[in-house]
């Protein structure tokens, strides 16, 4: 059994890191908003999904006009990424303005309900625009970066088999690393980042220190949503087919990642995302083997939620978070 697990390990690692990178960036959006507003932004998964649709729509449009063939594919992708992230960023700001800001002083339950409403609204909005334009809401993007590479793990040791990955996986991982480093720099080293941390710590005191709280919250939503939208595009390029309902479960798992890393903690969310991606891929590949055929790969979602529940019960502050006691 161990030999079989080892055999597939290199491939599991590569797939896991690719999936984990996606979880990590989406988890950033959850964790940033939670850190500042203490609100689970249910709509974040849908922003990711909308980003994927905007990106694919633009790629299809560019193919139709012949631009994609005219310019290098990487340049086209960067262009699409930038435009999509700006659009989804403004979408996030708009959602905050319309659905969350009027409720900032209401009970948490009400804000959460509004967030669920936004999430459902966006799913259907994207569904009917896509269906109206294309007759079907399941969309397949133009195939890009499909070259396969093999890493010869078998030459290191015969107990491993070779791992394969596509160029898009490489692009995905590189872009995610760039995004994370940039965000980490922004939050920790710039003035606006300091303002964000201040608002997250204590909103009222921050506003006394002449920080424009509303602006900082808008900025947080902009950054989180822009990152989410860009990840959506990368997801669509990596996995090919998208539908309007991918955002919800993926968002839920990304939230799990955020909780795993300690909610409100940006570096924790990155680590949690990678960890969850690896665990999930490992479970999908080996669950059947480990449980003697009792549980199959279709239980991988159950596995992710079980992790969430276990973490929340035994270590609700997450692996890298600080425990907070509630003040009366």
């Amino acid at each position: 059994m161990l030999a079989e697990i080892l055999q597939s390990l290199p491939q599991v690692l590569i797939d896991g890191i690719a999936l984990g990178a996606i979880y990590a960036v989406i988890a950033l959006g959850y964790t940033m908003v939670y850190g500042i507003l203490e609100l689970i932004n249910f709509a974040h998964g849908e922003i990711f999904m909308t980003g994927a649709f905007i990106g694919v729509a633009m790629l299809i449009l560019m193919t139709g006009m012949g631009w994609l063939a005219a310019m290098p594919a990487v340049l086209a992708l960067i262009l699409v990424l930038v435009i999509t992230s700006i659009l989804t960023g403004f979408m996030g700001v708009g959602i905050e303005r319309m659905a969350y800001r009027p409720l900032r002083n209401s009970p948490k339950l009400i804000t959460l309900i509004s967030a669920i409403g936004v999430s459902f609204l966006l799913q259907d909005l994207v569904r009917f625009i896509t269906e109206y334009k294309r007759g079907n809401y399941i969309l397949t993007g133009p195939s890009m970066f499909n070259e396969q590479f093999a890493i010869k793990f078998s030459s290191i040791s015969s107990s491993f088999s070779d791992a394969f990955f596509k160029t898009s996986t490489l692009i995905l991982i590189i872009s995610v690393v760039i995004m994370m480093v940039a965000l980490d720099f922004f939050v920790n080293k710039t003035k606006w980042g300091m303002a964000m941390r201040a608002v997250a710590q204590d909103r009222e005191t921050a506003s006394l220190m002449s920080i424009n709280v509303n602006k900082v919250i808008s900025l947080t939503f902009f950054i989180g949503s822009a990152l989410g939208g860009a990840t959506g595009v990368l997801f669509a390029v990596q996995y090919g087919t998208i539908d309007p309902y991918i955002g919800f479960i993926l968002g839920l798992k990304a939230f799990t990642a955020a909780v795993l890393g300690g909610i409100g903690n940006i570096r924790g969310a990155m680590a949690g995302g990678i960890m969850l991606g690896l665990l999930e891929m490992f479970a999908a590949a080996n669950l059947q083997l480990l449980t003697g055929g009792f549980f199959g790969a279709e239980y991988k979602d159950v596995f992710a939620f079980a992790i969430l529940i276990i973490v929340l019960i035994f270590k609700p502050e997450g692996l890298f978070g600080k425990a907070v006691t509630e003040k009366v």
Partner: peptide, 9 residues
């Protein structure tokens, strides 16, 4: 979904 979402908000 659209209608329910709108009602919730």
């Amino acid at each position: 979904r659209f209608i329910f979402g709108a009602i919730l908000i």
